[in-house]
C-alpha cells in the first residue's frame, strides 16, 4: 500500500535527491513546530489578558488560540508521520539516489549561495553598495557554474548597470 502523497501545487513531481524519506522529514518538521510554538508561549503568557485592557478581547487571546492550534496540528502531524514510518512499504516513490550527503560543492551549492548572499548583505553596509555588488556578482556567477571569464565579467557589469540605471536613475530610490 502506497502512502498517498499528493504533489503540492507548483512542483512537478521529481525524485527527491536527498536520502531522507518524506515521513522522516515531516516528523522533523512537526517537532520543530511544536518546539517553536512552546517557545512562543512564554512571551504570549506575559501579554496582558482580556481583563486588563479596554477592549473586550485583549492582545493575548488570539495569538494564544493560534499557538494552541499550531500545537494541536503539529502533534497530529507528528503522530501521523510516526504511524507511516512504522508502516513498511515494499515500494516508495522516492528512490534514494547515489548523491548522498556529500560535502561536495554540487550538493551544497544552495547553502553556499545563501551564505554568500548573507556575506554580500553585510559587505554592502561596510564597503558600499557598488563595490560589494561587483564582488558578489563575480562570486555567485562562478558558484553557479559560469567558467568563461567573459560571462562572469558580463554578469557583474550588467548587474551594476541594471541596478544603478533602473533603481537610481529611473526610479530614484536611494541604495543602501
Amino acid at each position: 500500500m502506497l502512502p498517498a502523497y499528493r504533489s503540492a501545487p507548483g512542483h512537478p513531481i521529481h525524485a527527491n535527491r536527498s536520502v531522507y524519506p518524506m515521513h522522516t522529514r515531516l516528523t522533523l518538521f512537526s517537532i520543530v513546530v511544536i518546539v517553536a510554538a512552546l517557545a512562543a508561549l512564554v512571551p504570549t503568557l506575559q501579554l496582558p489578558g482580556s481583563a486588563d485592557v479596554s477592549t473586550f478581547i485583549g492582545p493575548q487571546l488570539w495569538p494564544l488560540i493560534l499557538l494552541i492550534a499550531l500545537l494541536a496540528f503539529s502533534s497530529w502531524l507528528l503522530l501521523d508521520s510516526r504511524k507511516r514510518t512504522h508502516q513498511t512499504c515494499a515500494t516508495t516513490d522516492e528512490a534514494p539516489s547515489a548523491a548522498s550527503h556529500s560535502l561536495s560543492l554540487a550538493a551544497n551549492r544552495h547553502w553556499l549561495m545563501m551564505a554568500m548572499t548573507i556575506a554580500y548583505t553585510v559587505l554592502m553596509q561596510m564597503i558600499g553598495f557598488l563595490l560589494a555588488t561587483v564582488i558578489f556578482a563575480v562570486a555567485i556567477s562562478w558558484l553557479l557554474g559560469a567558467r568563461h571569464w567573459g560571462l562572469i565579467i558580463a554578469t557583474a557589469v550588467i548587474a551594476v548597470v541594471l541596478i544603478q540605471g533602473v533603481f537610481v536613475f529611473l526610479l530614484g530610490i536611494p541604495l543602501p
Binding site: 549561495m113 558578489f136 555567485i140 556567477s141 559560469a146 548587474a159 541596478i163
Partner: peptide
C-alpha cells in the same frame, strides 16, 4: 544561463 540570471535576481530582490 542561470549563473548570470540568478545573481541578478537576487540583487534585484535585495534592492
Amino acid at each position: 544561463p542561470y549563473s548570470v540570471l540568478g545573481p541578478i535576481i537576487i540583487m534585484c530582490c535585495i534592492v
